[in-house]
Amino acid sequence: MTARARHAQGGAWRSPAPGLGRWVDRHISWFFILPAGLFLAAVVVFPVLYTGVLSFYRWSGSATAAATWVGLSNYADVFAIDPGFRNALWVTAYFTGVSVLIEVILGVGLAQMLNREFIGKGLARTLLILPIAGTPVAFALIWRNMYNPSYGIFLWFAELLHLPPQRWIADVVTVIPSLILFDVWQWTPLIMLITLAGLVSLPSDLYEAAQIDGASPWQVFWRITLPLVRPTIVAAAMLRLMDSLKTFDQIYVTTQGGPGIASQTLNLYVFDQAFQYLNFGYASALLVVLFFVILAGNLLLVTMRRGQA
């Protein structure tokens, strides 16, 4: 018996409880993450795996009728014949791509404009947080009403600007641009506030040097500011992109995917398949596909961040 083993045995024999207490304390960090870990396993990991299993079945979700094993046929349907899925994929790409692009351009522009000392800066920041923080359902109801094709205030705005009258969310062509405008209103401030935080932390000596060299404000923006805050902007854009793929409340409340299926994103499509048509197996297969889309997005985010570091 080695000395250490004897010592350990002796310690255990003399006072088992303090020994255990010390062992727990030495590994306390594992006990600290244990509750959250168990929770995540039960509420996140298990459902994800369950979704994977369910995607091989056909099931109406009924408590009495059993699920039927259908193998890969749900996936075959998703990729081969389902026009609803293709439509949802296109709508999601259109909505997400255009709104994030506009938000980044506007957000960076506004951040550049507000990056100075002025009276009421704190107030301006607070006011700009409100669209991000407010209850999405409440906003969606208000925007829905503002887009009303017979009396909504957007009709009046269009008239003021001498634009031809639009039917906004009531028309298949304008529904997504209308939703994009809503999204841009809600989320441009986020990109702006993140970029503003990045701008504030830039070193001032570079700007002084540029001023001495007689650079124009435009040159300063393109040659100094933009390259320096680019990592912040890219990170903010990726963040927004991932969040944008999650958009549900705003679209569900304003259009419910309509008119027809013109604004049915992947989220809404899955929701309908599951809770409207009760195709739980098929909805699960769609979810697995959605997971891979999001996983790919996240991997892209991680690699881009690695590339910057």
């Binding site: 989220n267 599951a274 699960s284």
Partner: peptide, 19 residues
């Protein structure tokens, strides 16, 4: 933990509803 924030709510909802 962070991954939970990335997954759309609808992804949890189908299995949660059943369970």
């Amino acid at each position: 933990v962070l991954a939970c924030r990335m997954i759309p709510g609808i992804a949890f909802l189908v299995p949660w509803f059943i369970v």
